[in-house]
Computed example of a mutant assay.
Amino acid sequence: MNTNDIPGLEFDHYTSAQARANRTTVETIHRSAYADAISTGDPFNQPDAFMQRFDAYTDPHSGRFELVVARIDGRPAGQTWGWPLTANSRWWSNLELDSGDRAAFTAENGLRTFALSEIMVCNEFTGQGLAHALHDELLTSRPEERATLLVEPDNTPAYRAYLRWGWHRIGTLKPSWPNAPTLHALTRDLESHR
């Protein structure tokens, strides 16, 4: 993705402490990107539930969290974040692997897998390639071997985009968060995309 294709685009990178200091921006982007899901009353996507998850992700003791915020002409336009999985990470807890040795697949050491937790774009900036630009900005310099993400099976636009960007399904997973849906777990090799 060539970020020159989006005029006025800039990225800001934040650690967990810096992300917490920008909590208002994070919630503002979420409210715009998930306006339709919020309006349905879906409890998982409500701002309070979302921000509780954000606070857990950015816990100073949780590891090397990274947030990337996209701004277009200085205005928040989207965000993405994630962190490397450690031996104590609960990410794979409810994974039902399509095939293979689950224990070997889920063995983590902090250097093997980067969990891409969120990509969201404010409604007014959709359709410009910003999600792909955020994706690449976060993952291009990651040192891990692979990345993983979770996607709702019926989120066809996102699912198709992930497949185009080199991701593939490895199983299903229901996060332990209250009201979480069962999601498809995808992975992508990072070493071959550097």
Rank of each mutant, 00 (worst) to 15 (best):
154 D>H: 10
5 D>M: 06
24 T>F: 03
181 P>I: 02
183 L>K: 08
130 L>C: 04
164 R>G: 01
89 S>I: 00
55 D>C: 13
124 E>K: 05
91 W>I: 00
137 E>C: 04
80 T>I: 00
139 L>R: 09
96 E>S: 13
60 P>I: 02
173 L>M: 14
102 R>C: 07
137 E>T: 04
145 E>T: 02
28 T>L: 04
180 A>V: 05
31 R>K: 05
168 H>K: 11
190 L>N: 11
180 A>H: 09
185 A>V: 01
64 R>K: 15
138 L>F: 00
83 W>M: 15
77 A>F: 03
73 D>N: 15
142 R>F: 01
97 L>I: 04
41 G>R: 05
164 R>L: 03
53 R>W: 06
113 T>H: 13
161 A>C: 09
134 L>Y: 08
92 W>K: 09
115 A>M: 12
132 H>Y: 10
30 H>W: 07
39 S>T: 09
18 Q>C: 10
12 D>P: 07
30 H>A: 01
15 T>P: 14
4 N>K: 15
7 P>N: 08
190 L>S: 05
147 A>F: 01
133 A>V: 01
104 A>M: 15
193 H>P: 12
4 N>D: 15
85 L>T: 04
28 T>A: 03
44 F>S: 10
71 R>L: 06
183 L>I: 01
119 I>F: 03
130 L>Y: 00
191 E>I: 01
100 G>I: 14
31 R>A: 01
182 T>R: 14
150 L>A: 12
7 P>V: 05
124 E>W: 04
104 A>I: 07
74 G>D: 10
69 V>D: 00
139 L>D: 06
68 V>M: 10
26 V>N: 00
68 V>Y: 08
